[in-house]
């Protein structure tokens, strides 16, 4: 169970938000909305532990994420603005190294399957620099599949994706949530997942 208590964020000299509270349980989706510059990205980076809040804490299973760092990061996957793909490595090598470094034992077939699932089966061994921005985001999304993390933290995952990919991501998200997973999401496009009522957190209020 993920919880944010009395979170505050200061960027430069501006206070973006204060006294922010939210809770997220198994199978729930949290949609973070707000105008540009309202601190959506900062909140997500705070939740995944990349950025320390000015005040307040983020709790995972009742424990501060700073204290429970290793167990928290083992069960969490972050998808940021940049697709985290090394251009000199091939799509396969990127995924293989990323999973091994994150401590997830993964076999060749599984990586091939994940990439195939995301429609990248044909460009397995192409160096990533020859992939388009949309394809690179799919490589990052397939990393989510392999990570089998309970908590997904996605920062605008739907940008630069075509229609087919959009539907694919929404089905993956729905499946993840139905299996008891959790997700925190920021997006500008509407997210319709059958059977899931997302909790809304608006930062511009």
């Amino acid at each position: 169970m993920l919880e944010g208590k009395d979170l505050a964020c200061v960027r430069g000299e501006r206070t973006l938000f204060t006294h922010l509270n939210f809770t997220l349980r198994e199978g729930e989706l949290l949609l973070v909305q707000g105008a540009n510059g309202s601190g959506k990205t900062s909140l997500l980076r705070m939740v995944c532990g990349l950025m320390a809040p000015e005040s307040g804490e983020v709790l995972w299973r009742g424990e501060k994420i700073g204290a429970a760092r290793e167990s928290y990061h083992a069960e969490m996957a972050y998808f940021g603005h940049s697709p985290a793909v090394k251009e000199d490595l091939s799509a396969f090598e990127n995924l293989d190294f990323a999973c091994r470094l994150a401590g997830i034992p993964v076999k060749r077939e599984e990586v091939k399957g994940a990439l195939g699932h995301l429609g990248l089966g044909h460009c397995l061994n192409l160096p990533a620099k020859s992939l388009s921005q949309g394809q690179r985001r799919r490589v990052a999304l397939s990393r989510l599949l392999l990570a089998k993390a309970r908590l997904w933290i996605l920062d605008e995952p739907l940008t630069a994706l075509d229609q087919a990919a959009l539907k694919l991501v929404q089905s993956l998200l729905g499946e993840h949530l139905r299996q008891g997973g959790m997700a925190v999401l920021t997006t500008h496009q509407p997210v319709m997942i059958p059977g899931i009522a997302p909790k809304i957190l608006d930062l511009s209020a």
């Binding site: 760092r69 290793e70 972050y78 940021g80 940049s82 990323a98 994150a102 401590g103």
Partner: peptide, 22 residues
């Protein structure tokens, strides 16, 4: 610098292994 630019550094920071190791 190159890891920071393409976002892989953040993924490294978010791995379960203690940062001192990697």
């Amino acid at each position: 610098a190159s890891d920071h630019a393409d976002g892989t550094l953040e993924q490294l920071v978010l791995t379960p292994t203690p940062p001192v190791v990697w």
